[in-house]
Structures are given as C-alpha cells and as structure tokens.
Amino acid sequence: MFIKLKMKNILYKIILIAFIAYWVITFFFVMPNNPLNLDSIKGKEVFQTNFFQRWAFFAPPPTFNERVYIVFKNEISLHTDVFEALEPILKAKSEKVPFNTHQQLLDYIFASTISNIEGNIRVFKEISNIEKSKDNSLKSDSVTLDKLVKNIETTSDFKTLKNYAKIIAKNNNINTDLVSFQIQVVRIYIPQFVDRNLTEQKSEIMFSSHFLKF
C-alpha cells in the first residue's frame, strides 16, 4: 500500500515536471525570434509542426489594401479585358455581415494566397541577392526579375489565382482558348495618419505575371 502511494507520488511529480517543461518550451519557441530560439532551428521546426501558433495580432498591422487584377488579352484581336477579383468579395463581405461565410472564405483564401506569393517574392529576392553578392558578373536585374516571376508562376498559390481567373473568364463569356491571361497583385497604401483626410492613395504593383495561356 505504502509503495503504491509512493509510486503514485512519483508519477504526479513526473507529470507536473512534464507540464512545466511543456510551458517553458512553448514560451521559448513562441517568443519573437531571438539568438536563443534561432539557435535551436531544428527544435523550433519540430515544435511548429506539432504545436504551431503565432500570436502577433496586427503587430504590425497592414498599411495597405490589396487588389488582384486579372487581364485577358485576345491573341487574335489583341483586345484586353481587365477584372478586379478582390474588391467585390470584400464589399459583399461587409454588406452581408454576419451571414457572409462564402465571402469570408474567399477572402481568407485570397489573403493567404497573396501573402504566400509576397513571401515567396521576398525569399527569391533574398536568394538572388546572395547569389549576386557572391558573383557580380551574374545576370542583370531584369533577368533576375524574370526568373523570379517564372518561379512564382509554378507555385500552388499562383495556380489557385489562375483557376480563379478561369472562373472569371467563364462568368464573363471569355473563351479561354483564345486568350492569354496576366495576374497583377497591387497594393493600395493607406495614407499615413497625419494625411488621413487625403483622398489620394499611393499604389504599387507587387507582382505581375507574364501573359500565359490557360
């Protein structure tokens, strides 16, 4: 009886130590990047695979809104049609609140897709900068940019936008066999707080694909 009680006590201690360890590890890996957790990349990878969490909550908040332009160019007549995909979804999301599940899902899909594309651009740029710093005689900026765009065009995120472009083409009676398409992601910057009453907004093309066939 006494041994059983002792064993139980040891078991409780082990569980409590595991509990404390779990929280120490969680805190360690959830903290912003610092020399300590950056030194344990392998551990962070394992932790994020099983206990993924990110709690930055608008820190920093985005300082821009986004637009996704889909351009269809007729191969024969060279006539172009331009459609903006995002704004109508966001408008409907606000208008149909709280019964806006469809718009909300589309919004999340677009936001995640665009964010991944922008993330990939950052990564590809960093890689090409490293390559350039190693060998100055390497390619010009335009060649690098072309390579970057081609890389993005192979990603699943771009393919999602491409599929959506197909839906827009179908909805607008555009024959996808006769047109090539281009996708542009544009940022419209929110004016700084001191300029909040200005109506003019700066914009910037973040990504522009080649004209591609469906």
């Binding site: 903290m31 920093p60 908040p61 929110i190 707080f193």
Partner: peptide
C-alpha cells in the same frame, strides 16, 4: 511583445490602420 516592436503601436496610431483594412 510584438506590438512594442511595432512603430504604429508605439506611436498610438495602429487602430487607424486596422480600421481602414477593407478585409
């Protein structure tokens, strides 16, 4: 902790941006 690092939170204007995000 993340907000401390962010200029717009530090300078007291962050909610201006969050309220102007169309999403």
């Amino acid at each position: 902790i993340h907000k401390i690092h962010s200029d717009v939170w530090f300078n007291g204007v962050a909610t201006y941006y969050t309220l102007n995000i169309e999403r």
